[in-house]
Design a protein around this nucleic acid. Sequence first.
DNA 1: TGAGAAATAGGGGGAAACCCCCAAAAAGCT
DNA 2: AGCTTTTTGGGGGTTTCCCCCTATTTCTCA
Lengths: 206, 206
Amino acid sequence: MEEHKPTVFVVDDDPAVRDSLRWLLASVDLDVETYASAPEFLDAYDPDKPGCVLVDVRMPGMSGLELQEELASRSTKLPVIIITGHSDVQMAVRAMKGGAFDFIEKPFNDQALLDLVQKALERNRETIEAQVEHEHIQRRFDLLSPRERQVLDLIVSGEPNKRIAFNLGLSEKTVEAHRARVMEKTEAGSLADLVKMVTLLQQHSS
Amino acid sequence: MEEHKPTVFVVDDDPAVRDSLRWLLASVDLDVETYASAPEFLDAYDPDKPGCVLVDVRMPGMSGLELQEELASRSTKLPVIIITGHSDVQMAVRAMKGGAFDFIEKPFNDQALLDLVQKALERNRETIEAQVEHEHIQRRFDLLSPRERQVLDLIVSGEPNKRIAFNLGLSEKTVEAHRARVMEKTEAGSLADLVKMVTLLQQHSS
DNA sequence: TGAGAAATAGGGGGAAACCCCCAAAAAGCT
DNA sequence: AGCTTTTTGGGGGTTTCCCCCTATTTCTCA
């Protein structure tokens, strides 16, 4: 069972900042979890939880940037808002290039931060929605046997059964059987469906 | 005929900066064009020319940010490198969100800038390559008549001719004729091909 | 070692798609 | 008005696909 209520994960080594952010976010009825360091958060985080991250760039040990890059490498779709105390253009650019959702300077306007968090949560909802659809399809394609995968590739590349059979050194009948099983396992209602699902999967695999 | 040699478009109101950048870029055998203001560049720029833009954020009239946003709205695929004299995180974030290729602070290391320019030009090459492929396909789909487009939509959504005919109030024979013309005009070698081309076009239309 | 799945292959038949031919009404464009 | 394109429809045949059934060999896993 997945959670539906999003959580704002606050990561900052300064207890005063954590408390103040917790209070601010809770004031608009948001769930908040605070962590004193990036590794502490990474340890506790369940990848299925929706939400967004609010993290300070400058922290002892792992910086906010490194946390953001670590989350990205784990293909976590959690939007990361990075907060900085001192103007550092280099860091801002690096963070944005690394896919950070935003990069804001202290002191920030409370309402502006809340708006930003809402946008991040909205983005996260959309991402998760797409992800769920993607996983449903992937799960069905995972059911395919190696041979069925080979046949699938040739089907999607537009080959007729006759040439698929020749290509794989099989009889047309066998290809027909594989093809039928591919359509059944992937729950494709038509060839067009099948091709669309495959291209969708290819998009997010690269 | 398209140009193959890329050009670096330098946009800066300071003649000394223009000259120094021109000299630097020319020293590695790059073509350079300089402009004293954003509108001046926009006026002179031919959208088919490959290259990248080097622009200062702070200029009288139109800023580097505005230039970058204007280029983006024209669906110009020219990578924009924005140069700033003073640290401004807000601007850096806005630029990166707006799709700037990079945002660097003065004074910059000459070699670092040259490397950056080369990366931007490489990105531009890739973008143009994809764009050209896309346009070739688009041009073929533009040949379709309204009726053929309707039939195409239903084909791609997986409907068999029988239901397409019923759906559009036509005989199966007519649908067959339209379908054949769709395959011919789009130069699709198979249904799989057709679906792939349509999904590719849909990707870049949204 | 035995059950089940995967891979192989066939028969037969029906549905769908694809291929050529044709033709005529309707709409658009000089 | 005359020409072109579009849209419409058909005849007839070939190819491909899809679905029912059976059957053997191989492989894996419990």
